[in-house]
């Protein structure tokens, strides 16, 4: 119930999609993404800002297949909005950021519902922060908390059982800006 949308950057999603083709054209001569292929399916996550590996302009755009290609991890934990232990599967935020060559202090996470939160990069070094694609074996959808949900290993580390970490569990995640 904490990471519900905030209408602060309304219209960004539509805007971002509109911009993608233009940027792709402009960025073609620069770097076509070192080893980062162009997405073939529907893009579900966009990473921008201080990154070195891009595939569309100065952004890295991922479809579901590309995300599934990242090293798989799973995590069993309680959450602040559900009852009981949930089983999550997905990839580590650390691996994703390494894939795009992110260098910075802060990651600004943006959700479909316009929720925006700054997360310190150090979180991903200190904890195995998961970006979940499934919960209890079922694919997360935009009608629930999908397609991507940032999940902290809350049960493993007592310091994470704090409302100041709860608000970093961004669901309906759709883009990241590295700063």
């Amino acid at each position: 119930m904490r990471h519900c949308g905030r209408i602060s950057r309304r219209g960004l999603i539509g805007g971002a999609f509109a911009l993608v083709p233009a940027l792709a054209v402009a960025g073609e001569s620069a770097s076509a993404g070192e080893g980062l292929p162009a997405p073939s399916g529907d893009p579900i996550l966009t990473v921008g800002g201080a990154i070195t590996n891009t595939n569309e302009g100065d952004e890295a755009v991922f479809d579901r297949g590309m995300l599934l290609a990242l090293p798989r991890h799973s995590l069993d934990t309680h959450t602040s909005v559900t009852d009981g232990v949930q089983h999550f599967e997905g990839f580590l935020m650390r691996d994703l950021l390494a894939r795009v060559g992110a260098e910075g202090e802060t990651v600004t996470a943006h959700a479909l519902n316009d929720y925006v939160i700054d997360i310190p990069m150090s979180d991903f070094e200190r904890f195995d922060v998961l970006v979940a694609m499934t919960m209890n074996g079922r694919r997360l959808t935009a009608r629930d908390k999908g397609p991507l949900w940032i999940v902290y290993p809350r049960d493993r580390r007592a310091e994470l059982q704090d409302i100041r970490y709860d608000y970093r569990w961004v669901w309906q995640l759709d883009s990241l800006q590295v700063r």
Partner: peptide, 16 residues
């Protein structure tokens, strides 16, 4: 529509 459904789902889950 998806967002509204996700909101209603949230309110019908666990502690909420």
């Amino acid at each position: 529509y998806d967002i509204l459904l996700s909101r209603l789902t949230l309110l019908s889950q666990g502690p909420q």
